[in-house]
């Protein structure tokens, strides 16, 4: 069933792509595809992060704020403290893990609702990011250069952006974890029916916490990639609404907000569709203000079509 869902999504992407290419052939120009691929990589990494939490039956609303906070810290640490980029990167991963652990702990051990926990996170991290820079933009000075870091994050090999490569590698690893490992099975079971999982001896609290930690670490990686892409971060607006992009991609990709359902391939396809839509708005000269409306309409159409076909198949 998941495969058919993904196939449908792929067809939708191809249909949208073909339409755009017909109207403006430059959609298929290597440079445009490469640019879009770069953004697919950036948004894909934390969409996978979101998928883990959604499959656990939760939701992670603080992703955008975490991207802002970690981005600000990362840029600031490198630009002003002149620490080695590797050390900074590892520090960000650690912070992402800590944030994820706190969320998971509050959800799994104290039984707070994920929506509430991460909504508070959304506000707290945004506030911390703004306080840290006193609302100023964190950016590299003119001409600052970090060749290795820049190559890893924004470089391209034969036109393939390294951010996309990073996303594909992470998605493969996470796909194996989710769909092949015992942990993945436990996560699906816990997300769909936590009680039954507990009655089967699944350590549900640990599984949930791990899902949030994985999500936190992946989000931290995304934060670094975003920071290197924009090279300057205004803490009040950086990453705003990004959690919603991730949720949209996950839902498009077949994740159920009830938990226990979803696939990495689906999420990746969801991200591709969203980025093609963004690209489409610019390439077809649609007024930028309609951006969100286009995105919302296509998601709704996708979900409706999915629902329709599922119902048809369920009928005897």
């Amino acid at each position: 069933m998941t495969n058919r869902k993904n196939l449908g999504l792929l067809l939708l992407i191809l249909a949208v792509g073909a339409t755009v290419a017909l109207i403006n052939p430059r959609f298929l120009a290597p440079v445009n595809l490469s640019n879009t691929a770069n953004l697919v990589g950036l948004f894909g990494i934390f969409a996978v992060a979101q998928a883990f939490v959604i499959i656990s039956g939760g939701i992670e609303l603080s992703a955008g704020s975490v991207i802002a906070l970690l981005g600000v810290l990362f840029v600031d640490l490198i630009a002003t403290e002149t620490l080695s980029p590797l050390v900074c990167f590892l520090a960000m991963l650690a912070m992402g893990a800590v944030i994820g652990f706190i969320h998971g702990w509050l959800v799994a051990r104290l039984g707070l609702q994920p929506f509430v926990v991460t909504l508070c996170g959304l506000l707290i991290y945004r506030g911390l990011a703004r306080y840290y820079t006193e609302d100023a933009t964190a950016g590299f000075p003119f001409g600052a250069s970090f060749p290795t870091l820049e190559w890893i994050t924004t470089g391209r090999i034969l036109g393939v952006p390294n951010s996309l490569t990073a996303f594909v590698v992470l998605a493969l690893i996470m796909g194996v974890v989710l769909h092949r490992s015992a942990y993945g099975r436990y996560l699906f079971a816990t997300g769909r029916n936590e009680e039954a999982a507990r009655y089967s001896g699944v350590p549900t609290a640990r599984i949930l916490i791990a899902a949030y930690v994985i999500s936190g670490v992946l989000t931290a990686i995304a934060a670094v990639y975003f920071a290197m892409y924009t090279r300057s971060i205004s803490p009040s607006s950086h990453g705003n609404f990004y959690e919603l992009y991730a949720i949209a991609a996950a839902v498009l990709g077949g994740c159920s907000l009830r938990g226990g359902e979803g696939s990495i391939v689906g999420v990746a396809l969801g991200v591709v569709l969203l980025q093609v839509l963004q690209n489409l708005v610019n390439l077809l000269g649609i007024p930028s203000s309609l951006n969100f409306a286009v995105m919302g309409s296509v998601i709704l159409a996708g979900v409706l079509a999915d629902n329709h076909f599922l119902r048809r198949r369920d009928r005897p």
Binding site: R192, N193, A196, Y199, G260
Partner: peptide, 8 residues
């Protein structure tokens, strides 16, 4: 509720 995950 507890014995099975009925969708699985």
């Amino acid at each position: 509720a507890c014995g099975l995950i009925v969708d699985f």
